[in-house]
């Protein structure tokens, strides 16, 4: 149960570890296509996940006249986290400096299924667009009361609502709702802005994930550190085939890791791994 740094078995082990998440994502493609529906909320939320049929699940308006958009797709370098914000900004009549996305977390991100099949824009885009349009409609309803003017006589520029017939009368999104929830159901029925009126979508916007990536601030999954976390390595016998043609464990020589007092062997049926607080200990063990 030892492995040299340059051994081929070691390299394959780590290669698979690094690529695992991507492989899983693609394996879900079939399920994603199967669930695609005509409504804007195509996925069921889990018991502890935000309700996809509530507008507050999709975005929040802050007192400083900015918006947070809750995306359900992972930014993998495809630029979707920027493009989806463009779509939201467009429908809300905000500029790109007024929108940001929240870090993905199953506690607050809408479950939009796997990020796969180049579908973040194709499937996520229409939902974000509909949610942003619905938010704009709700905000204009509030503004109509505040400004005492019918909704169809209101105009919005950079999150500032004004009365068409008297542009000096204005109210900001942030003043209407600042950091309070909409408490409005997400119906997907709000009218969408015509493409001919687009100002943000269709323009070149710098990707929002790049600055952190070139400066070393971006947290890749390899950087995640949990309290009390152990590092692990899977033991793969030489000659083992991939996928379901696993080797049978005959015996495990537990004494082979005795030189690493903090290392422990993990065995589940024919799966064997080694864990240790120190990553290099786990690798050597």
């Amino acid at each position: 149960m030892t492995s040299s740094l340059t051994g081929a078995a070691f390299a394959r082990r780590d290669f698979l570890k690094g690529g695992g998440a991507l492989i899983i994502g693609f394996s879900l493609c079939g399920a994603v296509f199967g669930q695609e529906g005509v409504d804007f909320v195509a996925f069921a939320a889990g018991p502890d996940q935000p309700d996809l049929k509530q507008l507050d699940t999709w975005l929040a308006i802050h007192a400083n006249n900015t918006a947070t958009i809750f995306l359900g797709y992972v930014e993998l370098g495809q630029g979707s986290s920027t493009a989806l914000l463009q779509i939201a900004a467009e429908e809300l009549d905000l500029n790109m400096n007024q929108v940001k996305s929240a870090r993905l977390d199953t506690n607050w991100s809408p479950n939009q299924g796997a990020t796969a099949a180049s579908a973040a824009i194709a499937r996520g885009g229409p939902r974000i667009r509909a949610a942003a349009a619905e938010a704009r409609r709700a905000l204009l309803t509030l503004a109509s009361k505040r400004l005492n003017a019918p909704v169809d006589r209101l105009a919005v520029f950079n999150g500032m609502v004004s009365v068409v017939d008297n542009p000096t009368r204005t109210v900001a999104y942030g003043a209407l709702l600042g950091d309070k929830p909409f408490h409005v159901p997400f119906t997907g029925t709000a009218p969408l802005k015509p493409v001919s009126a687009y100002k943000v979508v269709g323009t070149r916007v710098p990707r929002n994930d790049i600055p952190d990536k070139v400066s070393g601030k971006h947290v890749y999954i390899q950087h995640v550190r949990m309290a009390g976390m152990l590092h692990g390595r899977v033991v793969r016998p030489r000659g083992q085939s991939a996928y379901a043609a696993g080797a049978k464990v005959l015996n495990v020589d537990e004494s082979s890791v005795r030189n690493f007092p903090n290392a422990r062997i993990v065995r589940r049926r024919d799966f064997i791994g080694v864990v240790a607080p120190n990553e290099w200990d786990a690798i050597r063990a």
């Binding site: 740094l5 390299a11 690094g18 950087h223 590092h231 120190n278």
Partner: peptide, 21 residues
């Protein structure tokens, strides 16, 4: 390997494990 010291002991996120070879 220096990489493990940089990422685990020093918490740096620039150098990243790719192939290990």
């Amino acid at each position: 390997p220096l990489l493990y010291v940089l990422s685990n002991e020093l918490g740096l996120q620039g150098p990243r494990f790719g192939c290990g070879l």
